[in-house]
Amino acid sequence: MIAALAAFTALTTIPALGGVEIDLESIARNWSNGAQRVGMLLTPDWSILPRTWEPMYQTLSMAMVGTVISAALAIPLSLWAARPTNPNGLTRRAVRFSLNVVRAIPDLVYATILVAMVGVGTLPGVITLVLFDIGIVVKLVSESIDSADSSYMEAGRAAGGTQTQINKVTALPQSWPVMASQILYSLELNVRISAILGIVGAGGIGRLIDEVRGFYRYDALSAIIIEILVVVLIIEVISNGLRKRLR
């Protein structure tokens, strides 16, 4: 398996075979340029920071709002997409199929299209995050419901319960730890994704990144990247802490 992968990689990087062309000559030609930029990246210009607060706040808000909206939609959708919680094959397959389609489209494509549709700003960013989150949360949660023991369903049916009652009173608390954990994970991903969504006009810190990059201010860019790194790490630490308490 690994050997096959290695062979495939080697083959596709041989220039004559097409695939990924690695043009060594042009790398060498541009190297002096690159060295200078790396130099700038290594000396961050912290004076940009005050200008980042506002867009960074916007990015975090987008991530948060996106997570909350997607969670509200993903919880019922996850139950409809799993066999034990939705024995009706027709609606289950319809939900799964729609979500496969939603998941197949990359987030930047959503953002680009939505910016064109609803205009520049945080709205297309939030919608992008919601679509992205629903795609992954519903997939992971419904698969976990599918593989978990669901013998308690039979007890609910034997007691004369409707599927909705069984889902609400037992399946929901039963799968809540997995749901909460995936929702927190989607919050982490949202912070990362929303940081770059601004590059295509979907609001947040990405817009500033695009701007300083346009002016070749790689030292300011480096300060922003470090700031994003710190924010992402903080969110991850908080989310990991919360997730541990779900066990």
């Binding site: 308690y152 007890a155 004369g160 069984i166 009173v169 037992t170 608390p173």
Partner: peptide
């Protein structure tokens, strides 16, 4: 009805499990 494997929702509370009887 009761079962060999108890058929309880393990992560739900005892109260929620017994409430199933009121469905």
């Amino acid at each position: 009805m009761i079962f060999q494997g108890f058929n309880l929702a393990d992560r739900a509370s005892v109260y929620q499990n017994v409430l199933v009887g009121r469905f």
